[in-house]
Design a protein around this nucleic acid. Sequence first.
DNA 1: AATGAATGAGAATTCATTCAT
DNA 2: GATGAATGAATTCTCATTCAT
Lengths: 216, 216, 216, 216
Amino acid sequence: MNETVRPTFLNLPEDKQARIIEAALTEFADKGYQQASLNTIVAASGIAKGSLYQYFTDKSGIFLYVFDFAIAVVRRLLVQVKDSTQEEDFFTRLERSLLAGLDFIRQYPKIYGIYLKILFDQQVPQRQELLQRVRQYAANYLHSLLRQGLARGELRPDLPAASAVFLLDALLDRFLQAASVPAFDVVLDLEQANPEALRQRVQELMDILRRGLAGN
Amino acid sequence: MNETVRPTFLNLPEDKQARIIEAALTEFADKGYQQASLNTIVAASGIAKGSLYQYFTDKSGIFLYVFDFAIAVVRRLLVQVKDSTQEEDFFTRLERSLLAGLDFIRQYPKIYGIYLKILFDQQVPQRQELLQRVRQYAANYLHSLLRQGLARGELRPDLPAASAVFLLDALLDRFLQAASVPAFDVVLDLEQANPEALRQRVQELMDILRRGLAGN
Amino acid sequence: MNETVRPTFLNLPEDKQARIIEAALTEFADKGYQQASLNTIVAASGIAKGSLYQYFTDKSGIFLYVFDFAIAVVRRLLVQVKDSTQEEDFFTRLERSLLAGLDFIRQYPKIYGIYLKILFDQQVPQRQELLQRVRQYAANYLHSLLRQGLARGELRPDLPAASAVFLLDALLDRFLQAASVPAFDVVLDLEQANPEALRQRVQELMDILRRGLAGN
Amino acid sequence: MNETVRPTFLNLPEDKQARIIEAALTEFADKGYQQASLNTIVAASGIAKGSLYQYFTDKSGIFLYVFDFAIAVVRRLLVQVKDSTQEEDFFTRLERSLLAGLDFIRQYPKIYGIYLKILFDQQVPQRQELLQRVRQYAANYLHSLLRQGLARGELRPDLPAASAVFLLDALLDRFLQAASVPAFDVVLDLEQANPEALRQRVQELMDILRRGLAGN
DNA sequence: AATGAATGAGAATTCATTCAT
DNA sequence: GATGAATGAATTCTCATTCAT
């Protein structure tokens, strides 16, 4: 947000900025970092090759800016879900979060795609840090839900919090992956599932969790 | 297995084959598919550039051959774990499988590395298929364990099998990732954990699962 | 002096002019002509990219203006040395000139640096002419000293003037180079020399010259 | 000579090697290091762009190889002059060395050109070291001549050797420069001089030196 | 007069693949 | 069967210059 983007870019008309971010997002989501080509980005956003370097310091500058942009979008969503489910019980909030996540990756597939890329592309600049930021954020979110659930007596008091958060994070993350990467969807068949069937899958999972975490 | 590798390669002395596979494995595990350089592979295995094309059709041919090789190693391991735990109860078998996985990625980090690469590198040839093969295999393995557990009454009879397998697969996969990718280890701190602490984490997770899946 | 700089520049407040000249001098002294970047110059002088083209015709225009500026500084110095040593004998004047040169390159390293750049950078615009101007000026200066020395009988009458001037010019020029380019200082070790040792070196050289040129 | 050039290059047919060295020498002599374009070199030597990187590690690899090549040529010349003038007296040897130098830069103007480039192009890789190597070599050569001259009583015994070598080096170096860079030739007019006039110039300089260094 | 966004040619370097020996 | 030289398109990045505001 600081040394990667140049003032020049921020002075651009908003629609031009949007076109460039969109093009970069698409390319990085598609190819990952190293394999993404600046040629493709400039072609798609209709600007000259040199202009990109008036806007950003270098390739990694573009990437990091786009990443920050994407993170901001996700954050807004999660804050909103959390706030709007204040009154619900723990498992309902979990379910709502999961469904919100599903909506999100359908609405912003490229943002989710860029996250998937960062996951395992060792060449991504500052990858470990970016990745940790994302996972930490998710863990904190779940932790916060968990604490409130415990306080309200919706979960058994002897629940080991760290392990529970780990399990929840693993499950939710994989669920979203399965919904967007067919190869991960070898069990639940989410792709084909109608909303009804999907809702039932979610219920089954919530039921297992309820037994495991609440004790009833 | 057929059009990617040439008979020339299979006629090579075994140690030469091994050197080449080792070099390719290292490079692909390190860089992923597109980013891997054939130059590095020929340099590391001490053969001529042109020879590679006597042995394999092209870059993707080498990759697919190496992948098959890696899969075979994994398969042997899982078969062995399954057989040697025939007599144990479901949750013990699960635990043993997890610990065997941990051992494996410590012993063969490159093979696990190549799996991580395939996970999200869209450029990998036939990626969807390779990935599906891996996940399907894991799902089948868990399903088989589950069926035996049900038959022995170690799990509650009304357990929705698909959802349970999905949960188990997600948990185990993520646990191994956390053990080898620091950025995934934001909750359990496996890196720092001594064997005792690690064992306790595993117990906690198994306990949650037991409640969720067995009903007691 | 006429087609390279625009009136716009000369109308600028003096301190702004100075800032720009300083920035350009620094960059050209540092990088030579072709390698110098206008970006660096505008950044250092805090003006807009486009403004540079309001002030000068193009890159070479800036360079030539800065060169003229530098020459004027040198000229002022030599005139002053010459005038202030009117009464001294030839070899004393020579020595004083050399020491003044040493002082100069320590005080204005950038001006000397720009001269060194011009020396052998074929890309410098009008290089031959600029270089010739400098060397011609130095030769004239030495010639003038020589004539006065001859007139006063401080030098042998049969001395071939051109060859003598050539020798003196070569010696003085190289001495200054040795004092500022370590690689040229393989013999006298001027870098390490204390003022006393340096003075002795100068005396030794003057002594050789005296024998060679005066005949006693 | 070691990590800059690849075996591939040395395996090339000699005429191809020669073509490439010639092209590189020409380009570097013309433009200096940074400003030299590999495009020009490959075009002039009729090879593909990628081939250059089969032969050398990178741009600086090419440059350093060409420099080593040039140095070897110079060395051969100086050794030969020194050996073939074993019997002559000091000033004759000096004169012969100077004339041999003149011949050399006429026969190999590009090699001399590359030396001139290194002189002041700050971007040249390992410039200080290369430059020092050249100047040190010249200084050693002159020192050796001087010692022999002293031993034979051809020079005055109280001559300060370092200063004398410095003077000789400065004079010879500048003489060669004047002969090849018109801008340095403001005094002696070597360009226009017929062999006779040139020889006379040399005599005049030698005469001054004789008085300065021998004392008679 | 001043600005600064836009441009595009050109730079060095990498790499999978081919093919004559 | 083995070799390794040759290729050229593609990569990221730089920079002097122009021009609308």
